[in-house]
């Protein structure tokens, strides 16, 4: 098992390396640079621009800049924000904490809601529950989450005054953004769960479980669900990535001070170090999640243990 983890880890390194290179190059090969953006077009003093470029190291050869960037990044130094002049790493950590809170809450909604919806649909195939689950799923993947967020605000904050419309605070502030963020993932997880469980439900050992006199709920939760979980875990891992990406939109709708909103602002401002660091951190998280999913596979299915041992 350790060998499996190690080999996956080794595969992840070139991917991250590639991500860093692409992000680095993308932001530099394209016209327009942060210094002129910072000063605006009306500032004419070339020396000032040059001085600032020099200070930021933007006048050095591209390769040197990249190697520097990478070496620093590995040590946790992502440079200094052009806009705020604060270390990017510190800022990222602060915003990431807020995003993580939102993402974890969203993921809980997504997993619990998705599996529940899929389970009901699979257990009551072709019933009204199944169709309802399908309708919810279709809506979940079809409604743009930024619009869903606005509608939830309109209903629960503006019309009913039940929940705050945005910003950070206690757990009340978390509910609407988390539901919004989770909606597409609920849909996808529900569909995958349904398809996977429907294959399991017809298997012989499920009949055995019923023949022992176990109740339907017990059979579904104890025998059917675990056996149908592998595809669900895969898709949940992938969905976590999409969910992270979705925070960009959700945070904008709900004025949630997270990484996504920070990143969008940085892009508008061409704050290179922040964009680089932000994208890199999200990619790192995404690759890590995939790694965890691979390992979870081994933990869940005992049959793989003996295969790995061979």
């Amino acid at each position: 098992m350790l060998r499996v983890i190690l080999s996956r880890l080794l595969q992840a390194i070139p991917v991250l390396f590639g991500v860093s290179l692409i992000v680095f190059l993308l932001l530099r090969l394209v016209p327009g640079d942060p210094v002129s953006t910072f000063y605006g077009f009306d500032v004419g003093r070339v020396e000032d621009l040059q001085a600032m470029r020099h200070q930021l190291g933007l006048d050095r050869p591209m390769l040197v800049q990249y190697v520097d960037f990478l070496a620093d990044a590995i040590q946790g130094d992502m440079g200094t924000s052009i806009k705020t002049r604060r270390p990017v790493a510190t800022e990222l950590v602060r915003y990431l904490t807020n995003t993580a809170q939102l993402a974890v809450a969203g993921m809980i909604f997504a997993v619990v809601g998705g599996i529940l919806l899929g389970l009901i649909a699979a257990a009551r195939r072709n019933s009204i529950w199944d169709n309802l689950s399908l309708a919810i799923s279709l809506a979940g993947i079809s409604l743009p989450i930024f619009w869903l967020g606005l509608m939830l605000v309109w209903i629960f904050a503006v019309q009913l005054s039940l929940l705050p419309s945005g910003g950070r605070g206690d757990w009340h502030n978390l509910i609407l953004p988390a539901i919004t963020l989770a909606a597409p993932s609920v849909a996808v997880i529900a569909r995958v769960t349904r398809a996977s469980l429907m294959e399991v439900i017809n298997q012989d050992f499920v009949r055995t479980a019923y023949s022992k006199g176990l109740s339907e709920a017990f059979v579904l939760l104890r025998h059917v669900l675990p056996n149908g979980l592998l595809p669900v875990i895969t898709v949940t891992g992938i969905q976590f990535g999409y969910l992270l990406a979705g925070t960009v939109l959700t945070e904008t709708v709900f004025a949630w001070p997270g990484l996504g909103r920070y990143l969008v602002d940085a892009i508008k401002f061409r704050d290179y170090p922040v964009v680089q660091g932000g994208v890199l951190v999200i990619a790192l998280i995404f690759v890590t999640i995939n790694l965890v999913v691979d390992v979870l596979y081994f933990l869940i299915d005992p049959r793989l243990h003996s295969e790995a041992a061979k």
């Binding site: 012989d204 055995t208 023949s211 022992k212 006199g213 025998h223 675990p226 056996n227």
Partner: peptide, 24 residues
């Protein structure tokens, strides 16, 4: 009927390879 299954009537199925839960 659930109380009958397993307690009053026991079942043995055809294919032992697929009739046991592989994850338990």
């Amino acid at each position: 009927i659930q109380k009958m299954r397993g307690s009053q009537v026991g079942f043995v199925f055809q294919d032992p390879m697929t009739s046991l839960n592989p994850l338990m």
